[in-house]
Amino acid sequence: MSYRSGQFWQPDVTVATVVERDGLLLMVEERVAGNAVFNQPAGHLEPDESIVQAAIRETLEETGWQVEPQAFIGAYQWAAPESGRHYLRMAFAAAPVAHVPERGLDEGIIAAHWLSPDAIQALSERHRSPLVWRTVRDYLDGRRHPLSILQSL
């Protein structure tokens, strides 16, 4: 059991989805601490949902796109230097299924954008975290694992 500042320590478990259409990747522009930043559709795992279900839900909530996860890209551990919070990100590759434009986007989301990998890299100063480009790079390098490696018991 690990403790931090006398409290039980637990990392934030998050999901992120790389969605590709015609060579462009679906990205979210969102406001965080007063700054407009870019991220994949991403968010926290909620109680009683699988990691795959969380990825589908977060993508819809943040972009209005229904997606079908195709592969697991990887798990990423990162500690945010400014807050000290630790994150465990589970990243997926997914195919776009349908856009639901009438669905409102989550609070804090400015817009969803389809961007080229070069445009995403050029925005690196505005990435929400270093996990953004690392996940894109791994996706572009072909890192794919079958969804069956993830078990929800």
Rank of each mutant, 00 (worst) to 15 (best):
E61S: 02
G23M: 04
T59R: 01
E61Q: 03
I56W: 01
V52G: 07
E29D: 04
P69L: 05
P41G: 08
Q77S: 14
A94C: 09
P47C: 06
Q77L: 13
A55Y: 01
E68Q: 11
E46T: 07
F92P: 02
G84F: 01
R89M: 13
E58M: 12
A93T: 09
L45Y: 08
A55W: 00
A36I: 07
Q40A: 05
Q53E: 14
V52T: 13
E68P: 01
Y87S: 07
N35Q: 15
G34R: 03
A91M: 13
M90H: 15
G84W: 02
E20R: 06
W78N: 09
E20A: 05
A91R: 12
S83G: 02
E29N: 09
N35C: 10
Q53S: 11
A79W: 03
N35F: 10
H44D: 06
V28W: 10
Q40V: 06
R57W: 00
G23R: 03
V37G: 05
R57G: 02
T63R: 00
E61C: 00
Y76P: 14
V28I: 15
L26S: 02
L88M: 11
T59K: 01
L25N: 10
A36K: 05
F38K: 08
P47W: 05
D48H: 15
A75R: 09
A54H: 06
M90K: 13
R57S: 03
R57C: 00
I56R: 03
L88V: 15
L88C: 15
A71F: 03
M27D: 08
G84Q: 03
A94F: 04
L25T: 11
Y87G: 06
E29T: 08
G64C: 09
E62N: 03
P47K: 08
L60K: 08
P41T: 08
N35K: 15
D48V: 12
R85A: 14
G64M: 10
M27W: 10
V67K: 01
V19S: 01
Q53K: 04
P69F: 04
F92L: 02
N39E: 09
Q70V: 13
E61L: 04
T59F: 00
R21I: 06
F38H: 11
V28P: 05
L25I: 15
P69H: 05
A91E: 09
A33Q: 08
E49L: 07
E58Y: 02
R85G: 02
A42Y: 04
A36P: 00
G23C: 04
A55K: 00
L26V: 03
A55R: 02
P96Q: 06
V19H: 00
G74L: 06
A36S: 07
Q66V: 01
A71Y: 02
F38Y: 15
V67N: 08
T63A: 00
E30N: 05
E29Y: 04
I51Y: 10
G64V: 02
P41W: 10
T63L: 01
